[in-house]
Simulated scan of single mutants.
Amino acid sequence: MNAESGLRQEVIKEMETLPEDQLRDVLEFVESLRRESSPSPTSIEEKIEARLADVPDEALDELPEDASENLDHYV
């Protein structure tokens, strides 16, 4: 077994002991690593979408419904 394969197996073994919520965090971390290694987005829409991908749904749910209309009030 080579070192890379051993490392992969060690990571998998450790992940198998994690509770579901921590596995979700691991998945989000791995996805963020993949995004960092992929070519950077070019349009402003793609850049915004890439940034929002890291924001948890719970945080977006807490935004006021009229935030875009009353931005000055909330800032």
Rank of each mutant, 00 (worst) to 15 (best):
V26N: 02
L7G: 03
V30R: 05
A3N: 08
E10N: 05
E4I: 01
E14H: 09
G6K: 14
S32L: 07
E36V: 02
L27C: 09
D25I: 01
V11T: 07
D21Y: 10
R8C: 14
V26R: 02
E4S: 02
P19E: 11
E10W: 06
P39L: 03
Q9E: 04
E14W: 07
P41E: 07
E20S: 06
E4N: 01
R35I: 07
V30K: 03
Q22V: 10
A3Y: 03
E36A: 08
E14A: 14
S38I: 01
A3M: 04
E10Y: 08
V11F: 15
S37L: 13
D25N: 06
S37Q: 13
P19R: 07
S38W: 13
E16L: 13
A3T: 02
D25R: 05
Q9A: 14
L33C: 04
D25V: 02
L23A: 08
E36N: 04
R24V: 08
I12K: 04
P39Q: 04
E4Q: 03
P41Y: 11
E4V: 01
R8M: 15
Q9V: 00
D25T: 01
S37M: 13
S5R: 06
L23M: 13
R24T: 06
K13R: 13
V30L: 15
P19L: 09
L33S: 02
L7W: 10
E14C: 04
G6H: 09
M15L: 11
V30N: 01
T42D: 12
E4L: 08
V11R: 09
F29R: 05
V30I: 11
P19K: 06
P41I: 08
E4M: 04
E36W: 10
S38L: 14
D21Q: 08
D25A: 08
S5I: 01
K13M: 10
Q22A: 12
L18T: 00
E36I: 03
E36S: 05
S37I: 01
S40Q: 11
E31L: 10
S40M: 03
A3I: 04
L33Q: 06
K13D: 15
V30T: 01
R8D: 15
S5N: 04
T17F: 09
Q22L: 14
L27P: 00
K13P: 00
T17N: 05
S40W: 03
D21R: 02
E28L: 09
E10C: 03
M15Y: 07
V11P: 02
K13E: 15
G6L: 14
S40Y: 06
D21C: 03
F29S: 08
E16M: 10
P19I: 09
S40I: 00
Q22M: 12
E20N: 06
Q22H: 08
R34D: 10
D21A: 12
R24P: 00
